[in-house]
Amino acid sequence: MTAVSLLRRSLRLHLSPALFRRHGRSLFTSSPLAASSALSLSPSHGAIPRGLRPPSSLLFPRFASSNISGDENLKRVIDSEIQCARELDNHGQEVDVPENFPFEIVDSPGDQAVFLKREFAGENIQVTVLMNFDEQDDMEENDEDDGDDESNESSMEPSVSLVVTIEKGESSLLEFCCNLNAHELEIESMVIKKRDDPDDQGAYQGPEFSDLDENLQKALHKYLEVRGIESSLFDFLHEYMLAKDEREYLTWLKNMKEFVAK
Rank of each mutant, 00 (worst) to 15 (best):
I48N: 00
A18S: 07
I192D: 15
V129S: 02
P109M: 02
D197Q: 04
I78A: 03
D137V: 15
V226N: 15
A34R: 14
F60A: 08
G70L: 06
N132V: 05
N132Y: 03
L41P: 01
F101R: 11
Q112P: 03
E87C: 03
D111Q: 13
M156F: 07
E175F: 05
S80P: 02
E99S: 15
A34F: 14
F236S: 07
K254N: 08
Y223R: 02
S40K: 10
E87T: 10
S171L: 11
S154H: 07
L59F: 13
F236Q: 06
M139F: 06
A219M: 07
G147L: 04
L242R: 02
K218P: 06
S155T: 05
F259D: 11
Y204T: 05
L7Y: 06
L253T: 00
V4P: 00
A35C: 12
L33D: 10
R22H: 10
R76D: 03
G51V: 14
L15V: 15
I82A: 04
L27Q: 06
A18T: 14
H221P: 03
E208S: 05
R9V: 01
S36A: 08
R25F: 00
G147Q: 07
T251W: 04
V4L: 14
E135C: 06
R25G: 01
L88T: 02
R50W: 01
A261Q: 11
S66C: 05
L6R: 13
V95L: 12
D134F: 12
T29L: 15
E157H: 05
L185T: 06
S40F: 13
F101S: 13
L174A: 12
E167K: 13
L253D: 00
K193C: 10
L250P: 02
E239F: 06
A203Y: 03
N67G: 10
D96M: 06
D89Q: 03
S56F: 13
S65P: 02
V77W: 13
S30P: 03
H23Y: 14
S159Y: 03
P55L: 13
G92V: 15
E81W: 00
A3D: 00
S31V: 04
D211E: 09
S108D: 12
E186L: 09
K244L: 05
P158D: 10
L52R: 10
P158M: 01
W252Y: 14
P55M: 04
S65K: 07
V260A: 03
E188N: 08
S108F: 08
V191D: 04
L41I: 14
E157V: 07
Y240R: 02
F259S: 15
T29V: 02
N255S: 14
Q126A: 09
P102V: 01
Q112E: 09
L233M: 09
I68A: 15
P49S: 02
N67P: 03
E248L: 11
M156K: 04
E94L: 10
S231T: 10
D79T: 08
S37N: 13
S31A: 14
G122K: 01
G122Y: 02
V164K: 10
E184A: 12
D138V: 13
S108M: 11
K254A: 07
S171M: 07
P98M: 12
D235K: 14
R76W: 07
R25M: 11
P109G: 06
G51H: 12
L250D: 01
R76Q: 08
